[in-house]
Design a protein around this nucleic acid. Structure first.
Lengths: 344, 344
DNA sequence: ACAGCATGTGAGATCGGTCTCCTAGTGGTT
DNA sequence: AACCACTAGGAGACCGATCTCACATGCTGT
């Protein structure tokens, strides 16, 4: 060990020289295409093994026009929902000799744009994106226009002609709120975020529809805005329940907000479900951990990543049909956080 | 829209042609090195903007020998601890024009090997790894021997000469168990995994040391093995507490096991801290969520990723000193899950 | 007027593979 | 003996960007 080996990788040229053949022949022998004599194949393989040849995927990618990599741009990798999807994508990809590159947009539109731009120039095979915004999204439209393989997960952008995998947010929310109404609740609060994010919009729409269908008024004072973090949700909950006429029930739009609501209610000394009934969108590990356990709208998280990959691979291998949209149904999981209230 | 635009990217050749200069000049104008006339620079810039030129990072990478990407190989991206670190790495990397590629080893040694092999051939700038095993790790040794920039996080491999960022697992565990001993506990159970993973080994060593230092026996029947999942930890807890002479306290080696222990104890009808005192390694969102809140050994998670990136960047930019090892101290966060017991 | 220098630009090599095209040798057929 | 089919392997183009080198200006100083 002389200490500083300047780390020069073994190239196919080295292998060819060692096996005493040309680069072309070495490549043929290693990759098993075209004609290659048995003796030569053996010699080349031996030389490659001996030198520890590993090929250079960058060079291969340049020649072939793309990298055997697909990109995933979630809203936030720390969100267990996206972590799970990332995990599933990774699993589904394994074996197809593709790597996964994860780059979180941190729910920032501009960051998302930069990331997509950056990933595009890497010549990835395709992208799976959960767009941070439902707004303009010119960058996504551009990708689609270029026929760049793209699948949207969780968040659907209206009018963007590409494959999507999502869940029935409106339906799930509607079911949850209807369930509360059936238990006699009339003043049902909701914590939602500013709803640049499509899923939040859809869930809020479901909340509205449930009320309207039941002939109940949609009251602005029952709808408080919060960012999707535990801390902000705590504040929002306290604001909501500090009103003169309190809600008797609360619906939260994602698991972080559900957590925040729970903590906020506890801070205020309000008991679930005696004082307040609670239903949250999105099941989460600790919903069964509390006392009482929380009633939630659960999404089939485990199916989303796998299906997205299948759709993407389909596109990559040339499928050129019209955009396909899959919406998984949600399921109301009844636990113990909702109580009946009497109506005067 | 004819429908099928075969997506041919704009190359520098196109830009050069449009600006009526040579490729070399176009490159100079765009990258601002060497001489370039003002008028030409403008013309080229205009042409590039007009055509939507974006450069091809694969080609650049081939020419320059490496990709502006660093890789992160965590044990499990679904583990909030690693998700947080991934998030921090990403943040720290942003602005230095590097992308992050995350590829989870799923705690499998062979998968880790394949991933590293695969990432190596992508000519990444460097790697941040949390090795799945403390065993042989020939693949890691090979990387180090090749002077491939490598930083280990969370899990230190003995004798591997590379930079590491970890926490004081032994010390933290020792502090936790000593804390239990001071509260009068003599039969202290521990749930640990098979400990291929270094952190688990170190934490278990801390448990042992605390007992030995206090002159207490280390009893095998108080140490149960469980995989690091909630489900397995529930089983392990039940096994542990089904013994004739029950432990009065329990120490768990990570947050998933703490969760499992809590659920297991609840199933058995045992109250924390009245029947059993509990301390967990690693703080987690829901430790403050339970009643009582859980006393834990917390790690400075937020510092690990950022420091790892700084160390890695340092190596990438040529630093060639001896391996540096940072161990962050842990902190015992006292909440309400430990009670005093009287000793006969 | 001409050397000497700073400046601007193009031709072509290069990175490490892949792949097309071409040549050469072998064996079989007529 | 002439021809063809087929196998084996080499030469060199190519992917897209960068960079060295050479060349062509125009300007200054003597």
């Amino acid at each position: 060990m002389t200490g500083k080996t300047p780390r020069r990788a073994v190239t196919i040229k080295d292998v060819a020289a060692a096996a005493n053949v040309s680069r072309a022949t070495a490549a043929r022998a290693l990759n098993g295409y075209g004609y290659a004599g048995e003796a030569v194949v053996k010699r080349v393989a031996a030389a490659a093994a001996q030198l520890g040849y590993r090929g250079n995927r960058v060079a291969q990618a340049l020649r072939q026009g793309q990298m055997p990599i697909i990109g995933f741009v979630p809203g936030d990798i720390q969100n267990p929902f996206f972590a799970r999807i990332a995990h599933d994508i990774d699993g589904q990809l394994r074996g197809s000799h593709h790597n996964l590159i994860i780059a979180s947009s941190e729910e920032s539109e501009t960051q998302e744009q930069e990331l997509l731009e950056s990933l595009r120039t890497l010549n990835l095979r395709g992208l799976i994106v959960a767009p941070a915004s439902s707004g303009e999204n010119a960058h996504l439209h551009r990708l689609v226009a270029e026929h760049y393989p793209l699948v949207l997960v969780d968040r659907v952008v209206p009018d963007l002609p590409c494959d999507t995998v999502s869940v029935d947010n409106a339906g799930g929310a509607q079911e949850a709120v209807t369930y509360l109404i059936r238990h006699g609740h009339r003043r049902i609060g909701v914590i939602h975020d500013e709803s640049r994010i499509v899923t939040a919009q859809e869930r809020l729409a479901g909340y509205r529809k449930a009320l309207v269908d039941a002939g109940l008024p949609v009251k602005p004072e029952l709808m408080v805005v919060s960012q999707s973090t535990v801390e902000h949700a705590i504040d929002a909950t306290i604001r909501l329940f500090n009103q003169r006429e309190r809600p008797t029930a609360l619906f939260t739009l994602d698991s972080l907000m559900t957590t925040g609501a729970l903590l906020g209610l506890r801070t205020m000394g309000l008991q679930v479900p005696q004082d307040v009934s609670l239903v949250g969108f999105d099941d989460f590990a600790f919903a069964t951990f509390t006392d009482p356990q929380i009633t939630v709208v659960s999404q089939p998280v485990g199916k989303i990543g796998a299906l997205a990959v299948r759709m993407l691979m389909d596109r990559i291998s040339g499928h050129d049909g019209p955009p396909r949209h899959t919406r998984f149904p949600t399921k109301l999981i009844v636990r113990g956080s909702v109580a009946h209230v009497a109506n005067p």
